[in-house]
């Protein structure tokens, strides 16, 4: 794939709820293997933006392309695109009535129509990838938050998506559990998974992102590489925002390994 070939293009997304404009024209492109991290104050449309990409929320205006195919206004083909755009939620949203392994395989069986043996094998493989194979037969209620989130990442991975959207994947977790989830995400980034991440984990942003995008009031205000953000004083808003978080400055990318 050429260096200037984008896997995902997001063009001028607008979204309003009544009078409240949540997104006021957001555009960006993503290359294969990139990790883009969205940061910014709460309520500035970051999660809405992710949901506009896979059309769980319908944008009022703007277009999304996956591999040059239009995702917006795609009718029932949206179910095809959603297989290619994985999503991980703040509250995991594991299927409560299914064990971990069945959570991962249910869409393989029902959406991809894989046969039972192949789906099971694939599901176990993905659980192994997130270190949850020993918990395959446990129900969501029996898992810690960090374990549940790792299963939900395995569930997204099983569909072999082109890109995964992470919507505040660690915001519902204790610091201790946050760490195990971020570890999994770092490994995915290293393995070349294309990821869009909305998070408040600044050390993750600074150590893993190819680009950090700072959103405020429904717009991308500043964007740059972690090195630029750390060193270039012109990233004033972002530096000030990151400075509010205790872990600023230690995000050298080494401390976690």
């Amino acid at each position: 794939m050429g260096a200037d070939k984008y896997i995902l293009r997001v063009e001028d997304i607008h979204k309003a709820y009544g009078d409240r404009e949540v997104l006021k024209g957001v555009s960006f492109n993503v290359r294969k293997g990139e990790t883009k991290v969205f940061i910014g104050p709460s309520g500035t449309g970051k999660s809405t933006l992710l949901r506009c990409i896979n059309q769980l929320t319908l944008p009022d205006q703007g277009r999304v392309f996956l591999n040059d195919e239009e995702v917006t206004n795609s009718g029932t083909r949206i179910n095809y695109f959603r297989q290619k755009i994985g999503m991980v939620f703040q509250n995991f949203y594991l299927f409560d009535h299914l064990t971990a392994v069945r959570n991962v395989e249910v869409a393989l069986l029902k959406v991809k129509k894989m046969d039972a043996a192949a789906a099971r094998e694939k599901a176990l493989e993905e659980l192994r990838r997130v270190g949850m194979e020993d918990w395959a037969d446990h129900y969501p209620a029996e898992l810690s938050g960090g374990q549940a989130q790792r299963v939900s990442i395995a569930r997204a991975l099983a569909m072999d998506p082109d890109v995964i959207l992470f919507d505040e994947p660690t915001s519902a977790l204790d610091p201790e559990l946050t760490r195990e989830v971020l570890e999994v995400m770092k490994n995915l980034a290293r393995q070349g998974m294309t990821m869009l991440v909305v998070t408040h984990e600044m050390s993750f942003a600074l150590s893993v992102a190819n680009e950090i995008l700072f959103m405020e009031h429904g717009k991308i205000i500043e964007r740059g590489t972690p090195a630029q953000v750390r060193e270039d004083p012109s990233f004033e808003r972002m530096r000030k925002f990151i400075g509010k978080f205790a872990d600023f400055g230690e995000g050298s990318g080494k401390e976690d390994d």
Binding site: L56, F95, D96
Partner: peptide, 26 residues
């Protein structure tokens, strides 16, 4: 919970598939 439908649709299930395989069994 609403999240069950959202997660099912995010995996590419149609609304009907989500009802049939995720919502109804619960």
């Amino acid at each position: 919970k609403e999240g069950q439908m959202i997660a099912a649709q995010a995996l590419g299930m149609s609304r009907w598939q989500a009802i049939r395989h995720i919502i109804l069994p619960q």
